[in-house]
Design a binder for these strands. Structure first.
Lengths: 220, 220
DNA sequence: ATCTTTCCCACCTAGGTGTGAACC
DNA sequence: ATGGTTCACACCTAGGTGGGAAAG
């Protein structure tokens, strides 16, 4: 069991390309992962992402900077999530261990809301996926459906727009350090602490030493 | 003076096209103003829009539905603001009267954030300009600069994207009932009341009869 | 029993209102 | 004085956090 867990861990740390693990090249197109250090610190603990019925944002935010596109061609940019391995996972004794065969994968792809847009637009500033939401129910909306307790790796697709980008090739990039296990509740306390310490929306769970949160609750 | 004021008023009420005042046609392209009734109720009092240094949203929100575009062609959609008449205005004795010659106009055009996009996208649902901000300082950003105390009419432009929409014509539409006077503070109490009663962000100024807002303020 | 999911909640971030006093 | 502008402010809308109890 420990063996399986460390296999998961090492998979999250091995760079997929020859160069810097935060950078990838596909043809002339270069894709670099933003906030690589933050992703690495989550990956070291094996990252988890909450999925809910109504959809939950990712944290850290998936964000990349892109070079080498045709500035005047049109592209749409997508993020999908590929299952890593054919197994599901359990958290027992503070360790992730195999939990049996994986459920059949669900096809779910998120189109970046700026799509479609010129290559120049996509290269002008980092492409942020701050609004993408992960869910475990098929809301048939603009949300990504994942199987809980499965390990995923986000995958970026840059696709020339049909009829508006003749001769341009599609590009694809993914970064092992962005892998995570989909969960309905955090399993690893270290991940919870990392989320709280870096996500501004979780500020109320910070600084437990300085303030007693229950002081305000007078009744009950 | 009353004569000038009523000229302003009637200008705001006369439909610019032959058909329904909330609808316009330019070539094959048809543009219809959403929430026409709301705009009319503001126009009856002579509408005002706040401008601030940091930028202020419009209320009502400028929103149109569009038909007749080429679904597979690319367009960008713009909103600009044309000065109506060559004069500025003053609010004296609860009436808008001429305040002399207009200041030189400022070129300022807002590109809808969905731009560029397919004709099919623009026709799929009403095009909302909910994020556009009006300012009286040149922030050199994505904000519209207006001269205070001048009368404006918003003007919609649908522009085929160069190199991605061969043979498509640009279209233009404007609606007199969306005219307004730019102000740094509301002049007409009737406008203030209309804003408060329809804009959810001004809810705290509603229901003065039911609640005393100052009750909570114990000090000073 | 155990593990997983769901729901409500207090507590935040982020930012859009007009007010009223101060400023120019 | 007068009229226009600016600013801090209380009070909202809108929605993103993990916690913890309850349910499955």
């Amino acid at each position: 069991q420990t063996e399986v867990s460390s296999a998961l861990h090492s998979a999250a740390m091995v760079p997929q390309s020859d160069s810097f693990p935060g950078s990838q090249q596909d043809g002339d197109v270069t894709v670099q992962l933003e906030n690589n250090d933050l992703w690495q610190s989550f990956a070291r603990c094996i990252n988890e992402m909450i999925v809910t019925r109504s959809g939950r944002r990712m944290f850290p935010i998936y964000s990349v900077s892109v070079k080498g596109l045709n500035p005047s061609a049109m592209y749409s940019v997508y993020l999908d999530f590929e299952v890593v391995g054919q197994q599901r996972w359990k958290f027992v004794n503070r360790k992730w261990v195999s939990g049996g065969r994986a459920d059949p994968p669900i096809q779910s792809r998120y189109k970046h809301p700026d799509s479609p847009h010129y290559g120049s637009h996509w290269m002008a500033k980092p492409i942020q996926f701050g609004k993408v939401k992960l869910t475990n129910k098929n809301n048939s909306e603009q949300q990504v459906v994942l199987n809980s307790l499965h390990n995923y790796e986000p995958c970026l697709h840059i696709v020339p727009e049909p009829g508006h980008s003749q001769g341009c090739r599609a590009a694809k990039a993914s970064f092992p350090q962005t892998q995570f296990i989909a969960v309905t509740a955090y399993q690893n306390e270290a991940i919870t602490e990392l989320k709280i310490s870096h996500n501004p929306f979780a500020k109320s769970f910070k600084d437990n030493a300085g303030r007693c949160k229950d002081e305000a609750v007078q009744r009950s």
